[in-house]
Design a protein around this nucleic acid. Structure first.
Lengths: 219, 219
DNA sequence: CCAGCCATTATTGGATCCAATATGCCTATA
DNA sequence: TATAGGCATATTGGATCCAATAATGGCTGG
């Protein structure tokens, strides 16, 4: 009731979505404590739906809840972040393989446009946004919803560190990524499963190794 | 307060643990609807902690929540179950690799004992229990908690179908599994990463293909 | 001056009550 | 007779209140 804005009908979901957005855009850095009452007040609701929302975000790995103590924005160590990337290396090629055959012409056009936008993007926030959009778009053909959700969670939990790392790199530090995107898109277009999988694996792996060179990104 | 039994101090966690146990042991088959009030009464609590518990189990993939409607024991289609297995094929070898070097003598002894127990086990429930124990024990060396949790979730969500499928097989249908367990253990003992990974991959993959031959297991 | 203990306070967890939504049945009508 | 609409009921979602727990700061004694 009195939802006001968009009209999603569930307070707890609305709060969860809002917080998720705030976390992913970097409004709350990892390690930040979040109090139930603050959020409740902020969304004009009581603490009940806030607690539900906290649990949802906990499930997504974005919040870390400690019983009787509080909620913090999840924080990854370098080792944990590398772990997430290693999982991505193994799992995303699988997702790509099931998605590739079902990507239609319209999607392919959009993917090409995104690669171009990526090359032209000057600021970090744009790069992050479009990079994410590009990769997730290569997965839309997949009918494997569970795997898709898992991959999205992996992206979400590592988002903050990807941003911090990207900030460190100069814009011309993205060259390898651009090349890899081109190669990936080409392999997809040719329908070459094996090649696409290998390129994607290498893309994620290279990023992991680069990231590991910047431990200062982590707490 | 008045926790009575073991004395974990948090009603919601206690309820979640209890429900989880009940689901994994097959007390509630997939598709069963669960009402908040029933559970609340059953645990002598109010609906608030039950709702929290539901969210936790939702996060584990054991419950499926639909807003304003209710909670059901999660159900997988054959395709979704195969999806989970394919993820396992790719992810568990990774976990094994990080665990292998850190398995001590005591653990190895226990693993040997479990393989033996598995070969001797006559009833399905015992087989399931020890098979799970065996594989998860090969992972205890891993310091990668996030990956470990993920794998455990994968086991949990497919538990019911593993049980149903295992029931169909005669006890002598486990031969391949036994052989694979022996081979896996041997590779671990030799410290042969590559071999261990490949055997484990094949073990999971074979099970997936076997499972796919029994679509009657699914709703 | 520092360490340890105790009380106070801020914050989360749980219970109860009320509101909103969905489901099923029943009736009226084409 | 079949179908659409609306009403009654069961169930979930949210708000408010109270209890329990953990962190904080001050106090006291060594």
């Amino acid at each position: 009731m009195a939802v006001g804005a968009e009209g999603d009908l569930a307070t707890s979901h609305r709060i969860a979505a809002g917080l998720k957005e705030a976390i992913l855009t970097g409004k709350y850095p990892p390690g930040t404590r979040i109090r139930q009452e603050d959020i409740a007040e902020q969304y004009g609701a009581s603490r009940s739906p806030v607690r539900e929302a906290f649990r949802m975000l906990d499930a997504d790995g974005l919040l870390t809840l400690i019983a009787n103590t509080g909620a913090w924005i999840s924080q990854l160590s370098l080792a944990e972040c590398e772990e997430m990337y290693q999982i991505r290396e193994r799992v995303e090629p699988l997702l790509l393989r099931s998605s590739m055959p079902k990507l239609d012409a319209e999607t392919m056009a959009k993917l090409h446009a995104l690669v171009k936008q990526l090359e032209e993007s000057e600021d970090v926030e744009n790069f992050l946004l479009h990079d994410r959009e590009f990769h997730l778009l290569t997965y839309v053909g997949a009918s494997t919803a569970l795997l898709g959700d898992m991959v999205q969670r992996l992206w979400n939990t590592t988002q903050h560190y990807r941003r911090a790392y990207t900030r460190l790199l100069a814009v011309d530090g993205f060259k390898s990524a651009h090349y890899e995107h081109h190669l990936l898109l080409s392999a997809i277009e040719r329908g070459d499963n094996e090649d696409a999988e290998r390129i994607l694996y290498g893309h994620i792996r290279r990023t992991r190794l680069e990231l590991a060179k910047h431990p200062e990104v982590f707490a």
